[in-house]
Simulated scan of single mutants.
Amino acid sequence: MTKIAMIVSDRAEPFGMGVLAEVWGDQYHPDDDTPVFDFVACTPEPGVVRGASGFDFVIGSGLDAAADADLVALAAKRDYRAEDPRVSEVLRAAHARGATIMASCTATFQVGHAGLLDGRRCTTHWRYGAELAADFPEAEVDTDVLYVEDGPIVTGAGSAAGIDANLHLMRRWYGARVSATTARRIVVPPHRDGGQAQFVRAPMPVVEAETLAPVLAWAEEHLAEPLTVATLARRAHMSERTFARRFRDETGTTPWQWLLGRRVAMAEELLETSTLAIEQIAQRVGFGNAATLRHHFGAVRGTSPQAYRRSFTCVESA
């Protein structure tokens, strides 16, 4: 059983704790066959831990509970620039034994204190990016993204982006089906790419007819076709320039990046749930041929379609 240790420090932010508990700590979901994890909350000094939002927490386990964890996840805290050497020691030990370390929002600072951000790309909430870069100049701080995975270190932006970062890790470990089922259980979208912007540049008018949602839904149903910005813009009754600008404003990404992400996601689903040949899957999701699918799948997921199928298939071969 995969073990997840959530480290909770003084003045912990409850939302980040809730994200980790929702994604990894739910012990009862009889309506699906997703894994149950060995989830434990731990803290440097077991007992009452001060919260950052007017209420406290009772944590019964000390940091030794993280000694054999597969994932050591840090809850964000209010006094984020203050290092706890005890937590740094746990993080360095986890890294040395090959465990994955997860930190979202202000928790990224503690990973930096442990010396694990040097030479790595990472992120945090856009509000704290300048401070993170100043405190850890050897790190490559990118606050234009939702989450970053650099080796065994996964860092997420603020608040809800922590959900995306954790679902990303779950998808990489257990496949798209498990991640999507978990997302459905906690009632969030199943996947947002890490490269998506943390926020859109301006609020959109609340005019139903102007939203791109119908065009995106149509595109999802026609991924096998050679979709282009011109095709989608015509569907939206906009010029290509207006469409591209509005697409970025509504989704935080570009049409090409969005289409690539959706095609890879559909390929994942078909690799897990069907016995279609790789060439057939490539055609069905709009990549045209197996070579193109392998190229984009490898670039996005870091593995080949064949290896992904071997790891996550849900069906028996014919």
Score class of each variant (00 low, 15 high):
199 F>S: 11
172 R>E: 12
198 Q>E: 14
204 M>N: 08
252 G>C: 10
159 S>K: 03
261 G>R: 08
259 L>H: 08
240 E>C: 07
222 H>A: 09
189 P>N: 03
247 F>P: 02
256 W>F: 12
251 T>M: 15
205 P>W: 03
171 R>F: 09
207 V>C: 13
163 I>H: 10
156 G>A: 15
174 Y>A: 13
223 L>D: 12
202 A>R: 05
178 V>L: 06
280 Q>G: 14
210 E>V: 08
278 I>E: 09
187 V>T: 02
183 A>M: 07
236 A>K: 10
236 A>W: 12
255 P>L: 04
275 T>Q: 02
214 P>R: 04
197 A>P: 13
199 F>T: 13
275 T>G: 02
267 A>I: 01
199 F>I: 12
260 L>K: 12
244 A>R: 15
169 L>C: 06
196 Q>I: 14
248 R>N: 01
242 T>V: 12
230 A>R: 12
261 G>V: 08
196 Q>K: 08
246 R>A: 01
195 G>E: 01
165 A>I: 14
264 V>A: 00
189 P>E: 04
229 V>I: 10
262 R>F: 02
230 A>Q: 09
157 A>S: 09
177 R>I: 04
247 F>W: 04
243 F>T: 11
224 A>F: 02
279 E>Y: 02
228 T>N: 00
169 L>M: 14
164 D>Q: 04
166 N>A: 15
212 L>F: 10
238 M>L: 15
258 W>V: 03
192 R>A: 11
271 L>G: 02
285 V>E: 12
183 A>H: 08
289 N>S: 14
244 A>D: 14
174 Y>M: 11
201 R>S: 05
181 T>F: 01
214 P>L: 03
164 D>A: 11
196 Q>W: 09
206 V>N: 11
218 W>H: 15
159 S>M: 04
220 E>P: 05
205 P>G: 03
245 R>G: 14
162 G>A: 04
277 A>S: 15
241 R>S: 12
271 L>P: 01
180 A>Y: 06
179 S>A: 15
167 L>S: 14
161 A>E: 02
274 S>I: 03
247 F>G: 00
275 T>R: 04
184 R>T: 12
284 R>Y: 05
222 H>G: 05
201 R>D: 06
203 P>V: 14
